[in-house]
């Protein structure tokens, strides 16, 4: 086993150990378990987004749309259809994922800034629909009037509705499953072709890769995972917020990814830790939180473009 691989396994082991023991050590630092849940949700959203940005080299600036659609799909299902948590999550994931897949069809031929602009615009479409469709989505006030239901396995029940530790482990289980799937995806031949597109699109095309199809597929997969994170977010808050669909949320997802390090698998999760901590701290200290968040964005871009994980990686490019 070479050093690099050993380093990788060690990182993964440490991260899992920390995540599994959160309820034991987080209160010591003055945190509460719901905060850790937020970290996992944003971390999953950003890791899913990073499949696109970090591993396919395509930048979307509209991922809040799929995150928000996941949240709304989950919430609407719980409110209007049935009080089943897993089915609601499935509904949210499908809603966001399918929307992303359809939008992706219009996107695949765009590149660079143009791609980003069109993704922003598509994101805003979803925002306006949620915002304007008052009687169905709750409009400006957001979607309320639903609550996550306990998991019922027939023989036994897990009360994720009231027991916050149980709910944390539920989020962690979903997060873990998604992370394993993403890691397998990146190891698969398809994952390798994503990297090839990132490194040199023209050469990958000459090698016979169907670039447009692969980018579309990668976009679609990324949207499904992001929507899954969104559905968890709705469960976490028992609330779906139209601002969760807004381009500002998209910016936050990008920021989380870059801050943590977009060339590292776990980078976005680390970014989510920083982001949630910053958000929690700054909004409790000052009303001018926008100034400080903006300043953080600017400083990260100018001084730490490789993110926290990138600082430990040799040869990572910006």
């Amino acid at each position: 086993m070479n050093a690099l691989l050993r380093h990788k396994y060690a990182t993964t082991a440490i991260i899992w150990a920390l995540l599994l023991t959160v309820p034991a050590w987080l209160p010591v630092f003055g945190g509460y378990t719901a905060l850790a849940g937020r970290v996992l949700v944003f971390g999953l959203a950003a890791m899913s987004f990073n499949l696109l940005l970090g591993f396919t080299g395509i930048m979307s600036f509209g991922h809040a749309a799929y995150f928000g659609l996941g949240a709304y799909g989950c919430g609407l299902f719980l409110k209007y259809v049935s009080a089943s948590t897993p089915l609601a999550m499935l509904a949210g994931t499908l809603l966001g994922g399918i929307a992303g897949t359809l939008f992706g069809l219009l996107l695949v031929r765009r590149r660079g800034v143009y791609f980003a602009m069109v993704t922003i615009a598509f994101g805003q479409v979803c925002f306006y629909i949620a915002y304007k469709w008052d009687d169905f989505t709750g409009g400006y006030d957001g979607l309320r009037g639903f609550a996550r239901a306990a998991l019922d396995f027939g023989a036994f029940k897990i009360d994720i509705a009231n027991n916050s530790t149980a709910f944390y482990f539920f989020i962690l289980a979903v997060f873990g499953g998604a992370a394993v799937l993403q890691a397998l995806l990146l190891k698969s031949p398809f994952g390798r072709s994503m990297l090839a597109i990132r490194e040199n699109e023209r050469r990958a095309r000459f090698l016979g890769l169907p670039i447009e199809k692969h980018i579309w597929l990668s976009f679609s997969i990324s949207c499904f995972f992001t929507a899954l994170a969104g559905s968890l977010y709705a469960l976490l808050n028992n609330f779906a917020d139209p601002l969760g669909l807004n381009y500002i949320m998209s910016g936050n997802i990008v920021m989380i990814t870059v801050m943590g390090g977009m060339r590292a698998f776990w980078g976005p999760l680390i970014g989510a830790v920083l982001f949630v901590a910053l958000q929690d701290y700054v909004s409790s200290m000052t009303t001018n939180w926008m100034f400080f968040v903006g300043l953080t964005f600017v400083c990260v871009v100018l001084f730490f473009p490789r993110g926290l994980m990138g600082m430990f990686q040799k040869g990572a490019r910006t």
Binding site: L53, M59, F61, G112, V113, A116, G251, V254, M255, V258, N288, M290, F291, V293, G294, L295, T296, F297, V298, V300, V301, L302, P305, T318
Partner: peptide
Amino acid sequence: RNHIYSLLLTFGLGFILQDVCRF
């Protein structure tokens, strides 16, 4: 640099300018 950085930079700049006006 990669386009993502210019997007993030102006995005953060917008936040700052908005709060400066408010201030």
